[in-house]
């Protein structure tokens, strides 16, 4: 009898936990509540938050800079290659998806599959750099530089700041790829790959705001 009551209480406790998991996926075990900390190392998340803060200040500066030079910004925006910007968005989103799939594969002890997804993510990042490189070459070839006008000062500095983050993200992905191929990660050791992946997703997240703000909004 006591044992049965205990079982009922346990079930009720689990149901309560489940109710608190408002947006949790149905893949989570029913007895566990939300995780206390995000995937990966906590230090990388503080780094990510600092990066987001820096980009947030940059976006605010661009938006208020535009407010004082609307005609110039709208006119100069027409000189940007919107197709290249959209294609680069697709590349970064796809790269982010590939890395998420890599983490998922490694979490199921499938290192070889994970390494292939990481390589695909690196290829997407490389594609982004190539497309952006052509955009820069086009602008520099036309004699445009940081001192051309306020719009291009913002465009070049903001996109180049992001460009450097893509390069750093790719360096991290290459290290993860090499280690994943060696079978260094697995379900019991996800910290490094989750941390690197989180940084890569942050680079994607920033571009998701940057593209409409700089290339489209007028």
């Amino acid at each position: 009898m006591h044992r049965k009551l205990g079982q009922i209480k346990a079930v009720q406790g689990h149901a309560g936990d489940t109710a608190r998991m408002d947006t949790s996926p149905d893949t989570s075990p029913p007895h566990s509540g939300p995780a206390a900390s995000p995937p990966g190392d906590l230090a990388i998340w503080f780094f990510i938050l600092a990066e987001l803060l820096a980009f947030g200040v940059f976006f605010g500066a661009y938006a208020f800079g535009r407010a004082h030079n609307v005609e110039l910004f709208n006119e100069m925006q027409q000189t940007l290659d919107r197709q290249a910007g959209a294609f680069n968005t697709v590349l970064l989103i796809t790269g982010s998806w590939c890395v998420a799939r890599a983490v998922e594969a490694v979490g199921r002890s499938r290192s070889a599959t994970g390494a292939r997804w990481l390589l695909a993510g690196i290829a997407c990042g490389g594609g982004f750099l190539v497309v952006k490189g052509f955009e820069y070459a086009d602008k520099f070839g036309a004699g445009i530089n940081l001192s051309t006008n306020t719009f291009y000062m913002f465009y070049l500095s903001l996109t180049f700041f992001h460009f450097m983050h893509v390069i750093l993200g790719m360096v991290i992905l290459v290290v993860l790829w090499v280690k994943t191929r060696q079978g260094a990660y697995g379900p019991a050791d996800m910290n490094s790959i989750e941390s690197g992946a989180a940084y890569w997703h942050m680079v994607d997240l920033v571009w998701i705001v940057l593209f409409p703000l700089v290339y489209v909004m007028r």
């Binding site: 206390a36 900390s37 992946a197 994607d204």
Partner: peptide
């Protein structure tokens, strides 16, 4: 939520990132 894996994490962490998105969108 999906790529960074914050869907099943305490609201504090989701709130930080979604709050950043809302703050930046509001400024713009």
């Amino acid at each position: 939520l999906d790529f960074m894996g914050l869907r099943g994490v305490k609201f504090f962490w989701r709130g930080l990132l979604l709050g950043w998105l809302l703050l930046v969108s509001s400024l713009i």
